[in-house]
Design a protein around this nucleic acid. Structure first.
Lengths: 115, 115
DNA sequence: TTGACATGCAAGTATTTACCTGCATATACT
DNA sequence: AGTATATGCAGGTAAATACTTGCATGTCAA
């Protein structure tokens, strides 16, 4: 269940692809456990639009929801972010300098610029 | 010029949002400097579609292109990945355990599950 | 110079996405 | 009970995205 397969990774990347959704995560990072209405305050779109963004974040497991009476409290879950970094970003980072070095060699070497 | 502003960060996130584009980056990670045709081999779509994906990766500066005669060589540039991590992902990761702890407290405390 | 190969450019379609409006439901407050 | 508050659900529109087909251009090799 906690398996981080390709589908769930894709959901995380897709969730992060929208600046509005990233702002929502930022908001929750600033203050965790906010209600829907509170989150709407900074979003310059209708409540329904914000709801839909939050649903994507929930589907990606980046946000966890807890009900308190009629209020929906939103909590940040940074685990998928870490998973994405660990399983995907890190491997590119590791060979960082090597690859740049290769590229530099190529550029300075046999390769020609297009006119 | 090398400024990593919000717009360029957005381009990177959007570029990473597609699994096909992520596969292209994986391919380049496995073997750097591949031609367009070589990259097409693993992509199960037309060459033009692959070209368009690569253009988005270029726009996000995740891929750098060098021409060698009639061949277009594609090189991975992991710098934007690192930038995204450093400027965006990391701050969520830092408070990782704290936030989970908060959440756990909330769940076990005053909050009630919805029926 | 001719033919094969590597790529570009442009326009068109289909799907997905972001967002809206309108109405329904449940909880809290008095 | 009655009103305000917090949210859900459903349907519709506009724009963005993924992908296609068709044709043009430039490079290599015989």
């Amino acid at each position: 269940m906690t398996t981080t397969n390709d589908l769930s990774i894709d959901r995380v990347f897709k969730a992060l692809a929208d600046s509005g959704r990233r702002r929502l995560l930022d908001q929750l990072h600033a203050e965790n456990g906010q209600t829907l209405t509170a989150l709407c305050a900074c979003m310059n779109m209708t409540r329904q639009a914000v709801t839909q963004h939050l649903q994507l974040l929930e589907a990606a497991n980046l946000v966890v929801v807890v009900w308190r009476g009629r209020e929906k409290l939103h909590y940040l879950n940074p685990v998928p972010l870490h998973a994405v970094y660990a399983r995907w970003v890190q491997k590119f980072e590791r060979s960082h300098l090597d690859l740049l070095h290769d590229l530099k060699n190529q550029l300075e070497g046999s390769a020609h610029e297009k006119a």
